[in-house]
Design a protein around this nucleic acid. Structure first.
Length: 340
DNA sequence: ACTCAGCTCGG
DNA sequence: CCGAGC
DNA sequence: GAGT
């Protein structure tokens, strides 16, 4: 819960150590060693805050989130300028293909490994020989599009198009762009629209957006494809898809997130992120006997033998972002300071 | 030995 | 239910 | 991989 200063020292004395540890982290990320990846991320964040060079194992061990194994690696990097464990990792064709397949939208470690084991190594292998879902085909076809960053002014252009389309149907609907754009980032990977309407039911909101606005945006060739959307059976409230700006061929990922007005505070926290900030604030809530999710801040729930939730708990706050911070005892942080 | 956030959607 | 995305 |  420390405030992020934004002073991202390019000339950090531990820059080389951080660079090598990050390569190790990326390796663990693509080999699906989830908790090691997170441990490396925490250790790197801790090292970034240091203003003096960490050279020995003992020095490293004194830093929180750096244990004996990472401390040993840090010492090795400083004294030899390399990490043997990293050089043991094989950058073979399977590893190259794994890195490629993991970039496809809708493909994770499980699917990527399956394809590797089936002998596939290129996107063309997948297109010609593998059985693909509709979304996977889209993900492959637009792998470069989805990797293209969206400059802030283009994000705002998306905002104007969507806002106009919605307000043409109902001017009372409120639209907020969330994600990295709300955090003030100069560019974004996708565009998140948080959509709500005061004094309206979710059914009403869903009907307007799904049945009227989205078809209209398709007709105007702004929306190009639906990837995931709430169905009748779910109480769901999201639409994931792809859109292009007029005159552009680049497909970008956009999300419509439909939120009851009473839950806007919790939804804003969730859809503003970043993900690290969300995890830490949720962990803090759980430590304080509460639970934070995209719907609100709750008193703690009863959990069964295997940790599954038995009860939902009582709602403490959900409408007001600032009140949720207050109840958690966290000083207010504007979105641009939620980068961890 | 156990936690590390918690949820929704597609298949 | 599991995998994946957010 | 680290913390409890």
């Amino acid at each position: 819960m420390e405030k992020h200063t934004g002073t991202e020292d390019e000339s950090n004395p531990n820059a080389r150590t951080i660079e090598v540890l990050k390569q190790m982290m990326d390796y663990y990320d693509r080999t699906n060693e989830h908790w090691k990846t997170i441990a490396y991320r925490k250790a790197i964040a801790a090292l970034k805050k240091r203003t003096r060079k960490i050279t020995t194992k003992e020095e490293a061990l004194a830093i929180p989130f750096i244990g004996s194994r990472l401390a040993g690696k840090i010492e090795e990097i400083v004294f030899t300028n390399r990490l043997r464990r990293l050089e043991n990792t094989n950058f073979d064709s399977a590893d190259i293909a794994l890195q490629l397949f993991l970039k496809i939208y809708g493909v994770g470690h499980s699917q990527a490994s399956l394809w590797i084991n089936q002998g596939h190594r290129t996107l063309n292998d997948l297109l010609t020989k593998a059985t693909l879902t509709t979304n996977q085909k889209i993900g492959i076809e637009h792998i470069d599009d989805f990797a293209t960053r969206i400059p802030r002014d283009e994000v705002e252009h998306h905002g104007r198009i969507v806002r106009n389309a919605i307000h043409k149907e109902d001017p009372a609907i409120e639209i907020t762009i969330g994600g990295s754009c709300r955090r003030g980032a100069p560019d974004s990977g996708d565009v998140d629209f948080i959509i709500t309407k005061p004094d309206a039911s979710m059914e009403t909101l869903r009907t307007i957006i799904l049945d009227t606005v989205i078809p209209s945006l398709f007709q105007h060739h702004y929306l190009r494809h639906a990837l995931a959307s709430s169905t009748a059976r779910s109480d769901g409230s999201k639409w994931h898809g792809c859109a292009t700006l007029p005159g552009s061929k680049i497909w970008h990922r956009i999300d419509f997130l439909l939120v009851p007005h009473a839950e806007m505070g919790a939804a804003l926290i969730y859809f503003t992120g970043n993900d690290i900030f969300n995890r830490s604030i949720r962990l803090l809530a759980s430590r304080k006997g509460m639970r934070l999710n995209q719907r609100g801040l709750w008193t703690d729930v009863l959990r069964g033998g295997k940790r599954e939730r038995m009860t939902q708990g009582a709602l403490l706050e959900s409408r007001d972002e600032r009140k949720i911070f207050g109840l958690l005892g966290v000083p207010w942080r504007p979105p641009e300071h939620r980068v961890c």
